[in-house]
């Protein structure tokens, strides 16, 4: 559905997206992960045809983003990072105005809007202005608005940012149900549990480049192993680990040991060196993310 080859975007000499290539298949949920400023949103903007690419090729549904903007946009549903519901209108008027931008006839638009409000359980807010609604409701409404044109591809730029757990779960359910209806979904997120839960495949980006791609499970297995053992960072433990040729990394006060056999390494450490705290846990996407992009703060 979306194919990028050597896709590049520069702003005044700054390279935001640096010759990335990826392919999103029909009907899958494809995730873009990365720290702030990694180039995720820029990539989304190029897919949406609102930011022209500097070089490389980018095709959406087989159409070039430079020449077929209107045809592409007709088939997209977009949930932007920032809420941009129209504060001059009520919920219903927002959707009606939006449906006009897709040339949807008024009568069928009304029917679609009623169905959609029901889908996100906001029918009772139909005639409310946008301002007094909660963040979760606004986010649900933006998702609803993105569905008015029955999109084939849905672009979600941080769909659950700033939401409480209830609202996040509701949005996740809706995303999954849209997937089961055959909609192709591209999403960016900072929440790694969200990515692990939703994405069929994902890429991790940093400094405009794609660092890894694959299914969440494969990525974790490849870069970490099944488990992580955390132990105190001291020379005797390091010596012990080096002797066993274990894979580990020092992160401040703790050592993270990547392993597929946590029992073995834990008992070895307990036997051989004097250490106090030691924990073993399953490896997660977050471990891969931090290992690849580092723990240093961005921006």
């Amino acid at each position: 559905m979306i194919v990028a080859q050597g896709l590049k975007k520069c702003f005044d000499g700054f390279v935001a997206v640096d010759e990335i290539s990826f392919a999103v298949e029909k009907g899958e949920i494809f995730g873009f992960l990365g720290p702030n400023g990694a180039g995720k949103t820029t990539t989304m903007n190029m897919i949406q045809c609102i930011s022209p690419k500097t070089s490389g090729t980018l095709e959406v549904m087989g159409m070039d983003v430079n020449t077929h903007q209107r045809e592409i946009k007709k088939n997209l549903g977009v949930v932007p990072q920032e809420n941009n519901l129209d504060p001059d209108f009520t919920v219903y008027e927002n959707f009606l105005a939006y449906s006009r931008y897709f040339n949807i006839p008024r009568e069928s638009a009304k029917k679609i809007i009623d169905e959609l409000l029901d889908f996100v359980q906001l029918t009772e807010k139909k005639d409310t202005l946008i301002e007094p609604l909660s963040g979760g409701m606004k986010r649900r409404l933006i998702l609803t608005r993105a569905l008015i044109n029955k999109p084939k591809i849905l672009i979600l730029d941080e769909p659950t940012v700033g939401l409480d757990p209830q609202a996040r779960h509701l949005i996740w359910d809706k995303i999954k149900s849209l997937k089961s209806q055959g909609v192709t979904i591209v999403l960016t997120t900072h929440y790694l549990d969200e990515a692990a839960r939703l994405c069929d495949r994902l890429v991790i980006m940093d400094y405009g480049k794609i660092l890894v791609d694959g299914t969440p499970n494969d990525i974790v297995k490849e870069y970490i192993g099944t488990d992580i053992v955390e132990a105190e960072n001291n020379p005797s433990v390091i010596a012990c680990l080096k002797k066993r040729a274990a894979r580990f990394e020092a992160l401040g006060e703790t050592l993270q040991i990547y392993t597929n056999n946590p029992q073995e390494i834990t008992s070895a450490l307990l036997k051989e060196c004097p250490l106090r705290p030691i924990t073993a846990r399953s490896a997660s996407l977050e471990d891969v993310f931090l290992r690849l992009t580092g723990k240093k703060l961005r921006e």
């Binding site: 609102i50 946009k73 932007p80 941009n84 519901l85 129209d86 504060p87 939006y98």
Partner: peptide
């Protein structure tokens, strides 16, 4: 402030 233009250009409108 309202990002109304951003919302509209995400649709087929240029």
């Amino acid at each position: 402030y309202q990002k109304t233009f951003d919302a509209i250009i995400a649709t087929p409108v240029s």
